[in-house]
Design a protein around this nucleic acid. Sequence first.
DNA 1: CTGAAAGCGCTAACAC
DNA 2: GTGTTAGCGCTTTCAG
Lengths: 346, 346
Amino acid sequence: MCLPSGLQSIDAKAMKKRITLSDVAAAAGVSKMTASRALRGTGDVSRSSMEKVGRAAKEIGYVGNHLAMSLASRRSDLIGVVVPSFLNVVFAEVLSGIAESLDGSGMQPVFGVTDYDPDREYEIIRNMLSWNPAGLIITGLDQPDETLQLLENADVPVVQIMDLDGTPVDACVGLSHHAAGASMAEALIAKGRRRFGYVGCGLDRDTRARKRFTGFKEALSAHGLALKTTWTGPGPSTVKAGREFTAQVLETHPELDCIYYSNDDLAVGGAFHCIAAGINVPEALVIAGFNGLDLVESLPVRIATSRTPRREIGNAAARIILGSDRDDPATGGTRTEFRPEIETGL
Amino acid sequence: MCLPSGLQSIDAKAMKKRITLSDVAAAAGVSKMTASRALRGTGDVSRSSMEKVGRAAKEIGYVGNHLAMSLASRRSDLIGVVVPSFLNVVFAEVLSGIAESLDGSGMQPVFGVTDYDPDREYEIIRNMLSWNPAGLIITGLDQPDETLQLLENADVPVVQIMDLDGTPVDACVGLSHHAAGASMAEALIAKGRRRFGYVGCGLDRDTRARKRFTGFKEALSAHGLALKTTWTGPGPSTVKAGREFTAQVLETHPELDCIYYSNDDLAVGGAFHCIAAGINVPEALVIAGFNGLDLVESLPVRIATSRTPRREIGNAAARIILGSDRDDPATGGTRTEFRPEIETGL
DNA sequence: CTGAAAGCGCTAACAC
DNA sequence: GTGTTAGCGCTTTCAG
């Protein structure tokens, strides 16, 4: 540990006296207020003061204290972002999009992971609110009442992302999963598929996957069709699970000409099984997922998927927060819809 | 927007009077201090006060203000975590591990993404320090001097993760990438491979990948061998890039019996190319990556990889921060080493 | 354009 | 056990 090349190295232990605004002001020969204004570029400050303060701050290594700043101004530059999981690349891309759009705005995203647990989500949001965030971006529209109340009582702009099937607290940006499931069914039927199976994981917790599932089934019904088999399990949607479950499903239902999965991870696993088992994809069996992961387009076989604009959703959400007036948290209830692009691979 | 089922609905606009500790104290009929102590479970408070305060807080919907709390106590329950990217599953798993170990500790992780940019990293760390975090977890040991200085001057426990090849600011947990590269080379040579090629992406920014590369080459040298070809490009390591580059490399170097990639994403792309091109993996050509992604074990062909304990690294890092005494930020310079497990698939 | 006073909401020290 | 007195480091008034 080396000491900051500094003056007051009196006591090796208590040495870490925080450098405060007063220190900067003193060093620059102005008052705290002028220093504060100069540092923030707020109000009118003479050029000479600006420069003196700027130089002084740099020299003594002033870092500032966001805690004090936010407490005094009753507003922070934090934006809370709540997602169910980091492990899902989809959310990683959304976060990336948010970070991208926030870059340069002075706002800092703070992420929270719920692990698909509503109670955890409640706690995380509650905790975030206690930091006076400038805005909140949360996943989905299916929060329990308790959480919704928390959000409504806090006067913070809230953007709900990913989903559109439901009533948002304020603004929302995403896509209709119900419609996405239905569109995929339509597309596959149009390509001549008739004997459908379904494989899904974690539907109990993933409400959006459930909506796609419902939309898919309803579209089949509308064409007088029905799923020949439905395999749903708990646990996360992984490639491994997809591969295993596909093997099982095909053993009992070799007649299928298409399997719809709750997402691309499972679908990729299905593709792997087919490659290993010598099943001709997509001619003999269409593997259909959801998300349009980058991985999918490099696969040795072509599978069907709905390409979702994750990054764009993140961008849009961040921009809504940035655009919302600080004094009037209403985001105008913006509703931004994205339509997934369907690829059948056929 | 529905009003909080409450009293002071005087002015629709200014209605959002923050509920403070004073309100709780008043409602419970005790002083602010007693309320504070009761809420935190600190010091001795009579059972009756505890209950009264708890009930009052719940009733009026008290949320607390971490800003004020942290400012007053000069300590926050935030733990800053800085990683280069979310898009890489590896970091997603590390974050997951951190969140897991922090769960229930009252600490909240705050994530920052550098996108492999040292300047951004500096800014993010600087920003995080201004929130008085309880600790900092940052990726790698290769920060520029400016950043190191920032870290050393701040009296906050710092844990550097993923890497071990270098000098940590304080504690570190991870693995030696140099050794990992060398071990992979040894293992492949032991399996009889002799004609090696290398494919890597983003080596200019990813110092750890570079260390593996160096370790790999040195081990080859030690056996009197050398790479037949080296393909390095800018841009991110994606499956797509892996597939394309593998095709190119094999076109000019069909004699290779093994390709080492900078990570599993590229290697998976390589595997896809081979499957599509009908190349027998691993007999004719060994595809060797790094990380041991879950995806790899479900692949239709077996590829070589070094399985890294991402979640465990996250767990360990979080525990070091939790264990470090708040008044004495020294983490004891703990050095926690994990050894990747090598799989050749042969 | 600049400064002085008065807090933001909470907790550390001390009293009692 | 409980209350009181001072701040934490900054910004918001509101005077100059």
